[in-house]
Nucleic acid binder design. Structure first.
Length: 596
RNA sequence: GGUCGCGUAGCUCAACUGGAUAGAGCAUCUGCCUUCUAAGCAGACGGUUCGGGGUUCGAGUCCCUGCGCGAUCACCA
């Protein structure tokens, strides 16, 4: 039984009976009752006074009288101005819990037949992953899991930026200064090694510019004329021509980077169903340019360059093909969109990309609509804010980035020292302990990055940001571990939590009622998180549920309870909370330990 | 300068999409381990929701305006 729809139906009927007015069930909105009033659900009557033809207070009173009389789930009510507060019947709560326990995967929706593609991560292969990538990856993974839970078929994809001038810079620096170094010989991860040469390139390039300027050259000209810049550009041309030696070097170095990335992805706990590589897609999109010209949505300038005129939509003109016929960034994005749709036939296509590309995606989606791509209606740019450090923005070339591998390792170390300080490591094998530190450290980090609304930019202070108390991943994990201990003990004692037994319970504690009420909202929470592409909704829910459970845990004894029915009910309630916490955390990519 | 986003307790964030007296965590202070895990619980302290107008039964939320911060406005990706 669904308690929320039962209430809504009762209210809808009350409108019919008391006012002869129609109020469809879907239009009945309930909100949680404020703590200072008696009841759990509140119906606000102000918007409906028009329909009832009574003032809000009278409306609330008359509805209250009707539902108390006619609905089995409503035991009592009180009216404060236009607010109708409802007190539900005990047996309704008990049945509700029973129904949740019986339902497999409570809260997750049945398949809705829709397909959604989520693109995230999308790294450059010239440098290692950093803190900003962590937010991207955690977001993309979590949103994918949330969409699955909401009934979608999800395809996670990673569009790897594996070509271009920036890659050539690393390659050139390696060729000039590498002396045949390999990840094995240097003893570092492949992505780190390649990243070092990207930095090396920049250092040497700056030296060349300085030298040229010292010889009297203009600074702007020096940037163009520096041999390293010339060399990188030549290398890019050679690569595009398929020059065997350049391609071989490119393959070798990208191979190192992928080994490094795969290790980092594994540590992060993210995965992909499909990879796209820009080296395969960078020539796509030109057919769409032709198509747009034919349809008259693009126009050609005298130098043969092709443009989209978006001025009528409040934007500017946007170049989609250079005068020499070569592509720009948006050209290949247009082509890749077609490719993705051909591969997966999505109803929705999500791009998890930082907010510095808001304008780019606005333009891209409009162009695709203008050339008649119906699938463009389902495209969405999941734009997230940058992660700033106390020192300001992260700049990879200035070495102020927080490396993803290093940060995760720090988290594991911090989790280890916390756990040891608390003396909670008894009975763990070394392997189990390591596994626990991994779950806790990663849980703290993921939760920290995901609990904030994606579009907000956020501050990350390595010393202070990560805590293990309060509104944190480990707090929620701890709640789960506590309940797991209860479940183990109940198992040992052979507690019978069958529906028959728990339905015999004769009284409920306020914290049990509030806990069950929170549990009933889980399906709506999942749906809301999916609709808003927001893991923060799930995170906040987990915290609220864990907090409420901990209150219950402190106030109510389980195994000292003499009434066997109450005892069984509390065990069942606890297990249901643990189950929802566990599965909600999984939507964030966070694992819930059995012990900690 | 144009466009977009953001501005809530000392700090980090919520606020069910317009509902009641704006809530949590951290920090500070006070209690609670002989009882199922104290990474916990209870309490205190903390607010002109950036300023000013407006819309209505009701505004942190919507509209206008000013201020501040950020992003973007490339034949870069």
């Amino acid at each position: 039984m669904n308690i929320n729809s039962a209430i809504k139906e009762a209210i809808s009927k009350a409108f019919e009976a008391q006012f002869g007015a129609a109020l469809p069930v879907e239009e009945v909105k309930l909100q949680p009752c404020r703590k200072d009033f008696e009841g759990t659900h509140t119906f606000v009557t102000f918007p409906f006074a028009r329909i009832s033809k009574k003032n809000p207070q009278e409306t609330a009173q008359l509805i209250g009288e009707y539902v108390k009389e006619n609905s089995e789930v409503i035991a009592d009510f009180n009216v404060v101005k236009g607010f109708l507060n409802l007190v539900l019947d005990r047996t309704a709560w008990v049945k509700t819990l029973g129904a949740m326990v019986a339902e497999e995967n409570f809260g997750f929706a049945a398949p809705n037949g829709q397909k959604v593609m989520v693109e995230y991560s999308s790294p450059n292969t010239n440098k290692p992953l950093h803190l900003g990538h962590l937010r991207n990856n955690f977001l993309g993974y979590s949103v994918s899991e949330i969409l699955k839970a909401a009934g979608y078929e999800v395809q996670k994809v990673n569009l790897v930026n594996d070509r271009g001038i920036h890659i050539c810079k690393s390659m050139l620096a390696y060729e000039k200064f590498g002396e045949g170094e390999t990840p094995e010989s240097a003893g570092i991860k492949g992505d780190k090694l390649v990243g070092n040469y990207y930095v090396k390139y920049d250092q040497e390039y700056k030296k060349e510019i300085e030298a040229l300027v010292a010889d009297g050259m203009d600074a702007e000209e020096a940037k163009k004329e520096a041999p390293l810049m010339k060399g990188a550009q030549k290398m890019l041309r050679d690569w595009e021509q398929g020059e065997p030696e350049v391609v071989a070097l490119w393959e070798k170095m990208n191979g190192w980077v992928y080994d490094g990335f795969n290790a980092t992805y594994k540590t992060m706990g993210v995965d992909f169903d499909q990879f796209y590589y820009e080296s395969n897609t960078y020539l796509l999109g030109k057919d769409i340019v032709d198509e747009g010209l034919e349809k008259g949505v693009f126009f050609k300038k005298e130098d043969n360059s092709v443009w989209a005129d978006l001025s009528k939509e409040g934007l500017d003109e946007k170049l989609v093909l250079r005068g020499d016929g070569t592509s720009v960034y948006i050209t290949q994005d247009m082509g890749t969109a077609d490719l993705k749709h051909k591969d997966f036939a999505f109803d929705k296509s999500i791009y998890v990309v930082g907010n510095e590309q808001d304008y780019h995606f606005d333009v891209l989606f409009r162009i695709l609509k203008n050339v008649g791509r119906e699938y463009a209606e389902g495209m969405y740019h999941l734009s997230y804010g940058m992660v700033d450090l106390p020192s300001g923005k992260m700049k990879s070339r200035e070495g102020t980035v927080v490396d993803a591998d290093d940060l995760m390792q720090e988290m594991f170390d911090t989790a280890e020292s916390h756990t040891k300080e608390l003396g909670k490591i008894d009975g763990f094998t070394p392997e189990q302990a390591t596994e626990l530190y991994r779950k806790l450290g990663l849980g703290a980090l993921k939760y920290f990055l995901l609990k904030v609304d994606p579009k907000r930019r956020m501050l990350f202070n390595p010393e202070e940001s990560i805590q293990f108390q309060g509104n944190t991943g480990p707090f929620i994990q701890y709640t789960h571990a506590r309940i797991s201990a209860i479940a183990r003990k109940a198992e040992e004692l052979g507690i019978d939590t069958s529906a028959e037994v728990i339905s015999q319970v004769t009284a409920l504690e306020p914290s049990e009622i509030e806990g069950i009420r929170l549990l009933t909202t889980f399906p709506e929470v999942v749906a809301e998180a999916a609709a808003n592409y927001s893991p923060a909704v799930i995170a906040n829910y987990c915290f609220e549920l864990a907090k409420e459970y901990n209150r219950f845990y402190a106030e109510v004894s389980i195994f000292n309870e003499e009434d066997a029915n109450k005892l069984a009910f509390r065990v069942a309630f606890s297990q249901q909370v643990a189950d929802v916490i566990r599965r909600a955390l999984l939507l964030l990519g966070v694992e819930a330990p059995e012990r900690m």
